[in-house]
């Protein structure tokens, strides 16, 4: 009770509640994974599945992907939804570098993960966006269904939950 009185105005009483203890690391990861702000960014056909995932039927806002940002400075998650061509490559790199840290990338569909149907005999296709920027989650499919993208976001959230603060070594074994 002394803590509550000493920190008047900073603490809040829950009816019948006690004291909640956590680590800064868990708290930061919990906040990050539940409020990913995606960059408004779609390259080709996969983008339509992404729009569908954001629309009311699938509604990725349920997972905290609340607001699509039109500027990379306000976004921390990028879904590369579609074919990346060499003309687009420097633009994608620049967008990624402008995004707020920590930032995450989902490579959506066959083209973004590997070049897909344009792997051979294509003068213009980058064989996987991981040649340009680091990728956190690879999502196969041509195109993946919205359920697939939702699963990729859940996997990304699991990955974020295991993030360590700077200077802390990664945990061994499954996450707590």
């Amino acid at each position: 009770m002394a803590v509550v009185e000493a920190m008047a105005g900073l603490t809040e009483k829950f009816p019948g509640g006690g004291l909640l203890l956590t680590t800064a690391e868990f708290f930061l990861n919990w906040g990050r994974k539940n409020s990913l702000w995606p960059l408004t960014f779609g390259l080709s056909c996969c983008a339509f599945e992404m729009f569908s995932t954001g629309a009311p039927r699938y509604d990725w806002a349920r997972l905290g992907n609340e607001v699509l940002r039109a500027t990379p400075r306000q976004a921390d998650m990028m879904v590369v939804a579609g074919t990346v061509c060499w003309k687009m490559a420097p633009r994608i790199q620049r967008l990624y570098e402008q995004m707020a840290e920590p930032r995450y990338v989902i490579a959506m569909g066959a083209c973004a993960t590997s070049g897909g149907p344009f792997y051979y005999d294509s003068y213009g296709t980058v064989r996987g966006v991981d040649q340009l920027i680091p990728v956190d989650i690879y999502l196969p499919g041509c195109p993946p269904k919205p359920e697939g993208l939702l699963n990729a976001i859940l996997e990304l959230e699991k990955k974020i939950a295991e993030d360590r603060l700077p200077g802390r070594r990664p945990v061994k074994g499954p996450a707590a």
Binding site: W86, Y119, Y120, D121, S122, Y123, R127
Partner: peptide, 11 residues
Amino acid sequence: TDDKLLKRPGA
């Protein structure tokens, strides 16, 4: 042809 282009094997 260029250095980035990859020919389909066997084609």
